[in-house]
């Protein structure tokens, strides 16, 4: 589904991402792990077009999407979340999700400003869809709460809901469990499992090893922008390179 070929990004002389080849198959959950500063978020930014790669190609469902703007990449069906700024803080939860439905509203600019009967119906559809997504994400008791006043964990879940509203084919989650308490972690893991059951393909960056190992079909490990291992969780766990990278990072920290 997603194919990355020789992807590289240099910042000045620094290689943030170096010659990465990767294939994500439809319907799987694919983990991307590595020590802090290994280039994982940069890798996400390269795929969804926040930054342009120095070299290499990104191919999604057979189409070359290298260097396209994030909103065009989103239109192709790749939606990502961020570590921070996943929500519209001044909007309520339902407003957040209904704005995120933007791609699927089909409401044109003129229709929107003229308030045609057609646009009213579409607005209603959007609200209904948004409510379904909120329910799916387990946030229905906060529908009309201001996003800013949600707890940290719920903010992150709302971030995922926002991404879902854009109807991704491939969902890229950047540390969805970061900073959550145990209860919120298990809630979010359940949500991710439900999404997989719905047939979504997921590319996951996560520091919580236990969660990553239990969730992912395959795992890809990078360090200093380079691939050091790839395989199923059991294989990766045993890989000496991986153990070295994590122990080394542990000693430095």
């Amino acid at each position: 589904m997603l194919e990355v070929k020789g992807l590289s990004k240099f910042f000045g002389g620094l290689e943030a991402v170096s010659n990465i080849d990767m294939t994500v198959k439809a319907g799987e959950i694919f983990g991307l792990i590595g020590p802090n500063g290994a280039g994982k978020t940069t890798f996400f930014n390269l795929i969804n077009g926040v930054i342009r790669p120095t070299r290499g190609r990104v191919i999604f469902e057979g189409q070359d999407i290298t260097g396209k703007k994030p909103h065009s990449v989103a239109k192709k069906g790749i939606i990502r979340t961020f570590q921070a700024n996943n929500i519209f803080p001044d909007f309520t939860v339902i407003e957040n999700v209904s704005l995120s439905c933007h791609l699927k509203t089909g409401i044109g600019i003129f229709e929107a400003s003229l308030h045609t009967p057609g646009s009213k119906k579409k607005e209603k559809d959007v609200l209904e869809r948004s409510y379904e997504i909120i329910k799916h994400a387990g946030l229905e008791s906060f529908t009309n709460t201001a996003a800013n006043s949600l707890s940290h964990g719920h903010k992150r879940i709302l971030g995922i809901a926002n991404a879902l509203a854009a109807e991704p084919k491939l969902l890229m989650l950047d540390e969805p469990l970061g900073g959550m308490n145990a209860e919120e972690v298990s809630e979010t893991i359940n949500l991710i499992r439900r999404l997989l059951d719905d047939g979504l393909t997921i590319l996951l960056i996560e520091h919580n090893m236990r969660a990553t190992m239990s969730l992912c079909d395959r795992i890809f490990v990078i360090n200093f922008g380079k691939k050091i291992a790839e395989g199923n969780p059991a294989e990766v766990k045993e890989n000496p390179e991986v153990i070295k990278a994590y122990l080394g990072a542990g000693q430095n920290a």
Partner: peptide
Amino acid sequence: KGIKQTDSLAESIGIN
């Protein structure tokens, strides 16, 4: 208004 609040998010969910 959404763009004003978090424009990186708005862009990534497909808003030009």
